[in-house]
């Protein structure tokens, strides 16, 4: 269940959980030269930039050539700023084909960390769907495939784990959004050898702090954060308010950067995947991971401030 307008007590409880988590050394955080900070994938130690690129809605542009070129510009800015993970799903309309078009145009197949999903209620269709997705992306294999929103998860997860065993896939994961089905999510995290989970987490939606993020640490599972801005609603809500002066302490120049810094400063978060249609926003998002991140006190301040606005 999403946490909306959390009380001070809820915020403090969450921060205590985070503080407890940060008492344990976090997954290695490092900085690239002039690029975004990276964090290690727990299961392999490979490093990934803390900011990725989502494609929900933003890359679903059909065959509109003008909008396709705008998406290519967004991808170009993302790679130029040091980005790697792009996430999509067969559910996202033409987004996968848009990504494939961009990768071709930018000749960026070797720069992308390809994260996609298996989204079918009929497990017999799983392999065909993955082949279709791979064809849309124009790649020979995915880095990461996730069972989308736990759909037919038992059978679909078996398909993905088999693919990983056969060397057709590097990482396996599961996804949820907006705090849904966390109990079931937790059970799967305990019972299956996952590399990644994808969930919603931001200064307002903080349910993941209670059980899922600590469990991800315990089970050495990477965490991808979706809907960092609540599909833009959070930014809309904040845009009439001035950014606090203290945001400059972590070199945040916009609310979006402050929110992203809050998310990726959680030690168990591997990567956040904001989606956008604008080059300026990509640069802004990537810059959030290139400058200082908030400490526990600052995180508390961010959550309290945004929760009260």
């Amino acid at each position: 269940m999403s946490i909306c307008n959390p009380s001070r007590r809820t915020i403090l409880k969450g921060l205590l959980t985070t503080a407890a988590a940060t008492a344990i050394p976090s997954w290695p955080l490092s900085a690239q030269d002039n690029g975004p900070k990276t964090r290690a994938v727990p299961s392999t130690g490979d490093s990934l930039p803390l900011i990725g690129l989502g494609s929900w809605i933003t890359f679903n542009v059909g065959d509109d050539s003008e909008l396709l070129e705008q998406c290519v510009d967004v991808m170009a800015a993302f790679f130029d700023a040091g980005g790697r993970m792009i996430d999509s799903s067969p559910m996202y309309g033409s987004s996968q084909a848009t990504i494939g078009y961009g990768l071709d145009k930018l000749d960026a197949h070797d720069r992308v960390f390809s994260a996609d999903k298996l989204w079918t209620s009929n497990p017999d269709e799983g392999r065909d769907q993955i082949d279709a997705s791979r064809s849309d992306w124009g790649i020979s294999r995915f880095d990461l495939l996730q069972v989308h929103n736990l759909r037919a998860w038992r059978e679909n997860l078996e398909t993905l784990l088999t693919m990983k065993d056969d060397g057709e896939l590097r990482y396996v994961g599961i996804t949820t959004s907006h705090g849904r089905r966390h109990d079931e999510f937790e059970t799967i995290m305990r019972d299956y050898p996952l590399d990644f989970v994808q969930l919603t987490y931001n200064p307002i939606d903080r349910a993941a702090e209670q059980r899922l993020l600590p469990l991800a640490r315990e089970r050495e599972i990477g965490v991808i954060v979706n809907r960092p801005f609540q599909q833009g609603r959070l930014i809309d809500r904040l845009e009439d308010h001035a950014l606090p002066d203290w945001a400059s302490d972590v070199e945040a120049e916009t609310w979006a950067q402050l929110i992203l810094k809050f998310i990726i400063s959680h030690p168990d978060v591997t990567c956040a995947i904001p989606a956008t249609t604008q080059v300026a926003h990509v640069r802004e998002n990537m810059a959030a991971a290139s400058s200082p991140l908030p400490d526990d006190d600052m995180r508390q301040r961010i959550a309290e401030t945004i929760g009260e606005l």
């Binding site: 933003t58 909008l67 705090g179």
Partner: peptide, 17 residues
């Protein structure tokens, strides 16, 4: 827990175009 916008796969600009 779903809102109508959770089922909207595209943006208004794409729709009108």
């Amino acid at each position: 827990t779903y809102r109508p916008e959770d089922f909207l796969l595209f943006s208004p600009r794409v729709y009108w175009r």
